[in-house]
């Protein structure tokens, strides 16, 4: 038992953080939100070059994965920097394209960053359909519980409908067109759903950590009544609660990455997303009016925290899965990994 990231994993996080800090992601997010994907695609390539998407792709198809712990490490950083695009969806797509012919056709492009994928499950919105080059639809297996029935139809759509505005302007929601090319007729979305939830949990944790860092920095320098507002107990205690919520979400995320049990991943998803949202509320309140403006960069994380809560599974769906997992008795959530292995 050694439940800590190793030096290599930490160095990977650090190098991604450095790459994204240098990329000035807020300006990339703003142009992406306006429908200009040029800077976003360039950033996507650099993220792919750093090896992020290869983590979701097996070695046989020019990847290095699947490596869920490293994927979680990467997505925390992507969330921390509010990176736009169908990042989670590309990871999910890799888990749908497992049949050797499809894997050979699509996975090398996803790993290298040349292709950008999005996914619609049972008619759900596909994120950033206008930016993606691989539009995947799964029909008939989106039962939402991660235990897909195995009889879904996987389809490559040829286009998408109008872009709908999300509360997070960087998330551009589209419906995929009917028809297109049927890729497979008996796929299961279960593994894609589990990976998407893990990546979303990690992204949300990163969003929450960024909100906390920015707010701590703000209340240290913002002065009222002649002292930094961060010296007031009412301010400190809200930030302490945000810190607690995020720090207890983190071990759930990495525990889930180790087991990849659907109930563990659902627990990590609901907890990380609620922690991030709670931190967003605190961040807004403690910034005051400046935080309530679109032009101030805090808004990029504030709105994402809310959107991620329901992306790839609502809090209620995730909790349901946790309880059905604990009813099985063998789930890691009831201590199975630690007690029985």
């Amino acid at each position: 038992m050694r439940f800590l990231l190793d030096d290599e994993q930490r160095a990977f996080a650090h190098s991604l953080d450095a790459l994204l800090t240098a990329a000035d992601t807020p300006s990339v997010v703003r142009s992406w939100s306006a429908g200009d994907h040029t800077a976003g695609r360039a950033l996507w390539s650099r993220i792919a070059d750093a090896g992020v998407f290869a983590l979701a792709v097996p070695e046989a198809y020019e990847g290095v994965g699947p490596l869920p712990v490293e994927l979680a490490v990467a997505f925390v950083e992507l969330g921390r920097h509010a990176v736009p695009g169908p990042l989670v969806e590309t990871v999910a797509a890799a888990a749908l394209l497992t049949e050797p012919g499809l894997a050979k056709r699509f996975l090398p492009g996803l790993a290298s960053g040349e292709a950008i994928a999005t996914v619609a499950l049972d008619g759900s919105y596909a994120l950033d359909g206008d930016a993606a080059t691989v539009l995947l639809a799964v029909d008939g297996d989106g039962d939402g519980n991660g235990n897909g029935g195995g009889d879904g139809e996987l389809r490559l759509a040829h286009g998408h409908g109008p872009v709908r505005t999300s509360m997070d302007p960087a998330r551009r929601l589209t419906r995929l067109e009917a028809g297109g090319e049927v890729l497979a007729t008996s796929v299961t979305a279960g593994q894609a759903l589990v990976r998407a939830r893990l990546a979303t949990a990690a992204q949300a944790l990163g969003v929450g950590l960024a909100l906390l860092d920015r707010t701590v920095a703000y209340v240290r320098q913002r002065s009222q009544f002649g002292v930094p507002v961060g010296s007031f107990q009412a301010v400190k205690h809200r930030l302490a609660d945000a810190k607690i919520a995020l720090e207890f979400a983190r071990p759930l995320l990495f525990g889930a990455a180790l087991s990849m049990d659907p109930a563990d991943v659902a627990a990590a998803k609901v907890t990380a997303c609620e922690a991030a949202y709670r931190t967003a509320r605190t961040a807004l309140q403690l910034h005051g009016a400046i935080g309530y403006t679109a032009e101030y960069d805090l808004s990029l994380w504030l709105t994402k925290a809310r959107a991620l809560r329901t992306a790839w599974g609502t809090p209620s769906e995730c909790r349901e899965l946790v309880l059905s997992g604990s009813a099985r008795g063998g789930s890691a959530l009831s201590g199975g990994v630690l007690r029985c292995s």
Partner: peptide, 16 residues
């Protein structure tokens, strides 16, 4: 569900 999750979170936090 939150009680089940919280116990697991506390266990893993402690292991870390």
């Amino acid at each position: 569900a939150d009680a089940v999750i919280g116990a697991r979170a506390y266990q893993l936090f402690t292991y870390a």
